[in-house]
Deep mutational scan, measured.
Amino acid sequence: HNLTITQGKLFFHYNPKLCLSEIHKMEEVSGTKGRQERNDIALKTNGDQASCENELLKFSYIRTSFDKILLRWEPYWPPDFRDLLGFMLFYKEAPYQNVTEFDGQDACGSNSWTVVDIDPPLRSNDPKSQNHPGWLMRGLKPWTQYAIFVKTLVTFSDERRTYGAKSDIIYVQTDATNPSVPLDPISVSNSSSQIILKWKPPSDPNGNITHYLVFWERQAEDSELFELDYCLKGLKLPSRTWSPPFESEDSQKHNQSEYEDSAGECCSCPKTDSQILKELEESSFRKTFEDYLHNVVFVPRKTSSGTGAEDPRPSRKRRSLGDVGNVTVAVPTVAAFPNTSSTSVPTSPEEHRPFEKVVNKESLVISGLRHFTGYRIELQACNQDTPEERCSVAAYVSARTMPEAKADDIVGPVTHEIFENNVVHLMWQEPKEPNGLIVLYEVSYRRYGDEELHLCVSRKHFALERGCRLRGLSPGNYSVRIRATSLAGNGSWTEPTYFYVTDYLDVPSNIA
């Protein structure tokens, strides 16, 4: 807008934040220059609390790290170098490059900038070799853009010569660093050979998330399962459950009422301010606690030095998902009996873990797994792929695949051998790939016309006998059925096997 004052003059007093240069501009645009008398524009009460600059400061050096910015700028000295009290560095987070010096300023003089007072450097006698002032900004957020400017702080001049310097606002972004852990990993099994893994992005990506790394490792069953005799009275049979499938998407929606109208769909109840505040506090606490764990609990591995020492970490090797089922080394339970199943799973520490690289999504279907087997899954978020990966501390989750139908069934015939004193040795093959492992066998036998009897055969007993022995049988026709019990439950009964026990007292003698 054009402003013209045809008559009258300007009068400025007691404006401590208004620089004289701005008042002189007002004289020019209003056409009143030359009308004012000496005392109409006070030299001592206008701009006496402001830094009124008329020179431009330029930054000469900028260096960044993930949490620091090192700045240096060209030296500046007023005509009387004693008038320079120091520099004021202003900075704040700036997602967009549209910041002005006066953003967030209120009537009390406060604003949204963080201000650092910096002492002037030592003055050199040689004007050509003056030290460049600077400042190291610490405690910054990774991968965050900051708006920065600097200006001088000078003393009051009796001659009211307006001098000083100020830089333009520059924008500097800190470097990326390792992201925080992925949030809320959930693993479920939808079949006997697959596990579905879902997660949420890290709360602090500290860069642009480029991919996720998912490692999985087959877990050995508890050692007590191999040692305890679950045929003993009072000892509860062990059981394991597989990871249940995901709930429906509708039930997972946030901010939804727990109660549904019987007449149909209901609208979600909005969260109160107290609920939102509580969630923010919980989120802040979780982030602080995660940072504490990362800094205190997890110790970084030592990389190899120039002395030739090897990095103890196993090298990563990509495998196809079809090879995942046989990740671990199978060892027989008892070496003397080769027909026992290889369900003991000690994992070799030198073995390469299978892994998958996930790009542009937060889910993965891990296939080719062994049925009813526990897996430990390790999830890392990465925001750099080359020249070397920059990934987060791992988040861990466990899951067990679903049982395989008929995996616990005894394959092959049940054979028998009759000894003296009416002892019958029953023999059968253990299931080759049971659900988890076989903890015991149930032997059901009966003599024709009598009630059915049951015998429990422990895992250890089966390994020693290759089956079991029935003792003290009365003469007669017998039928026997056997079924295995694994961590997933009972298998199917075998087809009945028949044998006849004679009275050993009636056996004919070869003595003449």
Rank of each mutant, 00 (worst) to 15 (best):
E389Y: 11
S243D: 07
L225S: 07
R469W: 05
P332W: 05
P403V: 02
P349V: 09
P238G: 05
F355I: 09
P475T: 08
S363W: 03
C267H: 06
M427F: 14
S274N: 07
L321Q: 14
T307W: 13
E356L: 06
V439F: 04
F226V: 13
S243Y: 09
Y504F: 03
F215I: 07
P431C: 03
L228Y: 08
E495R: 08
N360F: 06
V411S: 08
G264E: 11
P270W: 03
K278P: 02
P431A: 04
S203T: 09
G322C: 12
Y478H: 11
H211K: 06
P270E: 01
P270R: 05
V439Y: 09
K357P: 08
D222G: 07
P431L: 06
E279R: 02
A309E: 07
H371P: 07
H461K: 11
E495H: 09
V507T: 14
Y445K: 02
L293C: 02
V501T: 07
C231V: 01
I366R: 13
N422P: 02
N208K: 15
N255Y: 04
S344F: 11
S367V: 07
Y396K: 02
V331D: 12
Y504M: 05
E247A: 11
S248L: 12
W216C: 11
Y212F: 09
R400V: 05
I418S: 09
R286D: 01
L369R: 05
A512V: 07
S392L: 00
T210I: 03
E388P: 05
K233Y: 13
V443R: 01
C391R: 03
D503V: 09
G489E: 15
E247G: 12
G234M: 12
A336Q: 15
P245Y: 13
R313S: 06
P205C: 05
K361L: 09
E258N: 15
N360R: 11
T494K: 08
P300C: 12
G449K: 09
E221L: 11
T401S: 04
L379W: 03
T373P: 00
E404K: 14
S304M: 13
R240A: 00
S203K: 15
E420R: 04
T328Y: 10
A335H: 10
E388N: 06
F419M: 15
G368F: 14
Q252L: 11
I366W: 03
G306F: 09
R353H: 08
K287I: 02
Y448I: 13
E389M: 15
E389K: 06
F372G: 04
Y375R: 01
I209L: 10
G325D: 15
R218M: 15
A336K: 06
T373V: 15
A488F: 03
K233V: 14
Y396T: 04
V329A: 11
T307A: 08
